[in-house]
Design a binder for these strands. Structure first.
Length: 642
DNA sequence: GCAAGTTA
């Protein structure tokens, strides 16, 4: 690797906005090493950019100097914006995202209304206030523009709890606590601006962000469109042949995937959802129907691929996600090329993603939605799977028979209780299927977790370490994935970790797609083992082949002994150690505990910390009903189907 | 705020 260029040394009279702009890499064509020489070339503010000055930079000849000047001129909207936000303490790195959202006239827009940046790229009202202060020297707390922005802020806060619609009364309360007495005028102003819409919900006045209301509206319309436009594929006779090993509910689900535009397959873990999907794949192949499989997380997609023997990917990849703010390549103009689309682990799909997915399904595409309402809800707003089921607009198959081995065992009993909201005391019996380990806090919990994985479980139950998975709700903290993986590595595969903390023999998991890696590409969610270290990086043996991982890609490779519950959804292991630390806070819910517990096939260790958090989560924190409008919109558009 | 997804 080349030596990093020294950071530029700016004289004290250099323009701070100019410095921030250049150092954020916003002057395109100006590399890090050229930047080092910009101050010495005498360029310390925009007015000093001349061809003569640029020529004083090493390795800059006439043609490059000219290109730099045109690039500078082309970056005028960006620089104008930087002049507005940098003095307010907002990083120049935020500039491109803000230009994306507000357009090339962003600086002018903010001069008219600094609070227009609220909600863009996570910018909050405090930061917008700083922009206003920097621009005008001060402002009134109840400035109408500020009040209008706060309506959006109140809705976004509610969206963070999963709701897509908020009672007007709640918005009034929030505005009052922020010092806006005249909430109704503010709400009306937001509606007039087009960012917020009004709707009756459960008989009271309520508001939604327009984007979310539009998403729910378009999901409902697209479900209706796909339902209407579908034509049957395959034949009843071949269906009968492929579904020989299936029970009657499972075969009905395969039949629906063949005959209906949109269908849902639901049921708890171990009821054969994936097996049923496997049969749909088989039938589709028999009839030369192009079928694609996708799931919300990389790990779930990988698992789906393993179970069906077919390629599967994240929904984002299926849609051609363009990056942070970029939207999707696939959409109405360029739909997904498939006859049948299967989405697994659909409980984790939010309204934004569902709307994008449905828009990208062209008329005639068969969509099969597979998931379990009792498992993790989406991180983003909405409860799309549950709403689709509740609406009665789409045919649903419920799988109820538990096929997983030890169906009458302790794990199954505990899981069934948790699903209903009970956390019964576990009797420690001979089977040692479920073991509760009490600890005094997350530090000790981490310590006991390592003992369980490296010693107790292999010794007492004869389960190999490679078949044991640690699952925790969070990444950070003493009992988060990072610390746990660190501690597990010390025992399971100690070493200096010379390359990015890795040694030969480490279990790793990919957290991003590197489909062009050599010799074999790999996808987010793939699990592997480090087989070689070099001065550049590491070689990983994935199930699909080996890949050399170096440079930036090393950051998207993490140790895989401990993973989050979110990433574990869809996968199973012989033995699972669940850690439930207090740091998980509000993340702890019935669905999270249920998902975590049901990952275990033969043995479940539950590492507890003091306090009622676990019992409280299971008993009281059932997926707090999310307020959404999707089910109602579907009922308005479509007749009940059962 | 936590938790997932993504690229030139």
């Amino acid at each position: 690797m080349a030596a990093k260029p020294a950071p530029p040394r700016w004289p004290s009279d250099a323009d701070p906005v100019f410095i921030a702009f250049c150092e954020a890499g916003l002057w395109s064509g100006l590399g890090k090493s050229a930047l080092t020489h910009v101050p010495t070339a005498g360029i310390t503010r925009p007015g000093l950019i001349t061809k003569e000055a640029l020529l004083r930079i090493p390795r800059v000849a006439a043609s490059r100097a000219e290109r730099l000047i045109s690039a500078w001129i082309a970056a005028t909207p960006e620089y104008d914006l930087a002049q507005v936000i940098v003095p307010a303490g907002i990083s120049a790195y935020a500039v491109p995202g803000l230009i994306d959202a507000l357009g090339d006239a962003a600086a002018t827009v903010l001069e008219d209304d600094p609070w227009r940046i609220v909600g863009v790229r996570g910018i909050d009202v405090g930061q917008a206030d700083a922009v206003a202060r920097a621009m005008f020297g001060g402002f009134e707390r109840d400035d109408p523009r500020r009040a209008r922005a706060l309506v959006g802020e109140a809705l976004r806060e509610d969206n963070n709890n999963g709701h897509t619609i908020t009672p007007l009364e709640d918005v009034r309360d929030s505005l009052r606590t922020w010092g806006i007495p005249d909430a109704d005028t503010a709400c009306q102003a937001s509606i007039d601006q087009g960012l917020v819409v009004h709707r009756q919900f459960d008989g009271y006045d309520a508001l939604s962000l327009r984007v979310l209301a539009d998403d729910e509206k378009s999901i409902a319309r697209d479900i209706a469109r796909l339902t209407k436009s579908s034509r049957k594929w395959g034949t009843a006779a071949s269906l009968k042949k492929v579904s020989k090993g299936l029970d009657s509910a499972q075969s009905r689900a395969v039949e629906l995937a063949r005959t209906e535009g949109v269908s849902i397959l639901t049921g708890g873990p171990g009821t054969g959802k994936s097996r049923t999907v496997g049969t749909v794949v088989e039938l589709a192949e028999k009839h030369s129907q192009h079928i694609v499989l996708a799931a919300p997380t990389g790990r779930a997609a990988k698992r789906l691929a393993e179970l069906t023997g077919m390629e599967a990917m994240t929904i984002h990849r299926l849609l051609g996600a363009q990056g942070k703010e970029g939207g999707f390549l696939r959409g109405r103009d360029e739909p997904i090329e498939a006859d049948v689309v299967v989405i697994d682990e659909a409980s984790m799909v939010d309204v934004r993603l569902a709307a994008a997915l449905l828009a990208a399904c062209e008329d005639g595409t068969h969509l099969m939605i597979v998931g379990d309402e009792a498992q993790l809800p989406s991180i983003g707003p909405g409860r799309v799977l549950a709403d689709l089921i509740d609406s009665d607009a789409v045919p649903v198959t419920y799988l109820e028979t538990l096929y997983r081995q030890a169906a009458g065992g302790q794990i199954a009993k505990l899981a069934a209780a948790v699903r209903k909201g009970d956390l019964p005391p576990v009797e420690m019996d001979e089977s040692k299927e479920v073991v509760i380990v009490a600890t005094n806090g997350s530090g000790q919990a981490a310590h006991r977790t390592v003992q369980l994985v490296t010693d107790s479980i292999p010794r007492a139950l004869g389960i190999e370490t490679s078949e044991i998975q640690v699952v925790t709700p969070v990444h950070r903290g003493a009992a988060g994935t990072k610390e746990l993986n660190y501690a597990l590595k010390q025992k399971l595969n100690p070493g200096p970790g010379a390359v990015s903390g890795f040694d030969v023999g480490d279990r790793v998991i990919a957290t991003a797609n590197y489909l062009d890696a050599s010799p074999t590409g790999y996808a987010n969610g793939e699990v592997g083992v480090i087989t070689r270290l070099s001065d550049k990086g590491v070689t990983v043996q994935f199930a699909s082949g080996t890949a050399d991982v170096a440079g930036k890609a090393l950051r998207d490779l993490v140790h895989g002994w401990a993973i989050t519950v979110h990433r574990a959804q869809g996968s199973e292991w012989q033995a699972v150690v669940v850690v439930a630390p207090p740091e998980a806070g509000r993340l702890m819910s019935r669905s999270l505990i249920y998902t975590a517990f049901t990952r275990a096939q033969k043995h479940l260790s539950i590492v507890r910390t003091p306090g009622p958090a676990l019992a409280y989560a299971v008993r009281e924190r059932a997926l707090r009903p999310r307020r959404t409008t999707l089910a109602e919109r579907l009922r308005e558009l479509m007749p009940a189907c059962s």
